[in-house]
Amino acid sequence: MTQRHPFHLVDQSPWPLTGATAALFTTVGIMVWFHFNTPFLTLFGVVMVILTMFQWWRDVVRESTYEGQHTSEVGSGLRWGMILFITSEVLFFFAFFWAFFHSSLAPTIELGTCWPPTGIDPINPFQVPLLNTAVLLASGVTVTWAHHSIIAANRPEAIQALLITVLLGLYFTALQIFEYYQAPFTIADAVYGSTFFVATGFHGLHVIIGTTFLLICLVRQLKFHFSENHHFGFEAAAWYWHFVDVVWLFLFISIYWWGS
């Protein structure tokens, strides 16, 4: 096997095709759900998306850890890909903040020209939301601890720190579920409810995705996949986690605190 270039020429893969069809099932399924009130095609589409994601990323791990295809040149491409992905996520959340400030900075007559709107009893930001802020900031510390441990080839501490990070992520999600149950308003409570639940809900989804990403890193760390100079899978998860953390700080300050 002689390869005289640093690039990764990938094998033929079925996953783009299965992923595209799975996305079709999900979108048509949602239409069917809305029109005929049966969620089965949507659920089937989600199962197919998960099957595709599992196998596709399993192959990426094989290509990097087992085949050694991730040279510094390929790694540079992966880094740029992750940077652009997170940038697109920033813009996604920017839109929700825009909607929130659009509605809250000049509240309409229907809302009582005040924010929070008349009749809305907002969540106290210094109870569970402040705890959530502390939990996410602490998880930012532990993920950095995990990174330093991986660089120092300190396996036990890397495992401990990653485990604590994952547990903090799960704790955050549990607290948010609790908070949603306790909330005195719903997503149907005018523009306050919709901006609040769409922004915090998508953030919660991102926390769940980030926790899953970190959990995969923990499994890979247990299976000796990361070396002290080659662990971009972990770094991408850490970047993503910090992004989720920063979005929460903006949510906490503007929607929970200023908005109450």
Binding site: P14, F44, M48, L51, Q55
Partner: peptide
């Protein structure tokens, strides 16, 4: 996965 894709397409 492939069988699921074919089945889902018809569905």
């Amino acid at each position: 996965t492939l069988i699921g894709c074919v089945f889902g397409t018809f569905w």
